[in-house]
Amino acid sequence: MPYMKGEPMNDNKEMKSDAALEVSRRDFLGTIAGALSAVALVIVADDAVYIASGAEPGAPLPAGGYDPDKHSYVYVIDITKCIGCGSCVRACKAENNVPDLFFRTWIERYMVSRSGEVSVDSPKGGYDGFDPSITGDEITKAFFVPKMCNHCSHSPCVQLCPVGASYRSPDGVVLVDEKRCIGCGYCVQACPYGSRFLNPETKVASKCTWCYHRITKGMRPACVEMCPRGVRKFGDAKALHDEVSEIIATKQVHVLKPELLTEPNLHYLGLSMEVR
């Protein structure tokens, strides 16, 4: 509509009366505003694409010949086998340069007495092993539970991230875009499992990546690679005859805090009710 007004505007100019000048100026401003809104509309429509886009096939790959759409990773931890040696914790720290005081994976030790008292500890995340001395009641049940990011399908951290820095990759790994994260810490508050932290060096949210730099090269995550007892198993649900997805499909597996319906992709074998 503003463009159609262009013709009479020229006519008015020729008349050169004050009133006409007034009108023409308003028309001119209107035209600019109209043109700008038209440009803005195009841009909005353009930007709206990224909001609407789910998973568009055919997008360029970030690097190498790896195709995230062809994988869907899963993870199983067998609690009955864990000896609490801490190899995974040390491996994770070394592989991912995890800052002191924080952990991308850690081991918890549970000791339950006959009276039902539960005591839990995780000194330095299990990095230096566990204290053998036991105090208190007779322990009737004791076990180790390795913890890490659950890489939930419906992750509260991804939902709550205000800038789209936390996301779930097409292959099912929850990651943080360290170049866009503003360091607000909302995702840290939102994670029910305590898997996230603000890295004091980079000032952005940080967490387990399932060693994304390794798994995209066909290697296993460092914690899985270094586990001496086969407690930790990493698999790909889109691969043929995958051992780990077979366990999830056929065995009695549990996830942590299932009532929150976050749908973790980390499953536990032999989980006990004391574990939160």
Binding site: V49, Y50, I51, S53, G54, A55, E56, A59, P60, P62, A63, G64, Y66, P68, A91, A94, E95, G164, A165, S166, Y167, R168, S169, P170, L175, D177, E178, K179, R180, T209, Y212, H213, R214, T216, K217, M219, A222, E225, M226
Partner: peptide, 23 residues
């Protein structure tokens, strides 16, 4: 690359993939 595959910067995957492997 923002929004190519979802509400995030797709190139961020590349940032992770290029991290050095240590083990």
């Amino acid at each position: 690359s923002f929004g190519e595959q979802g509400f995030y910067r797709y190139d961020s995957l590349g940032d992770y993939m290029t991290q050095p492997v240590r083990h």
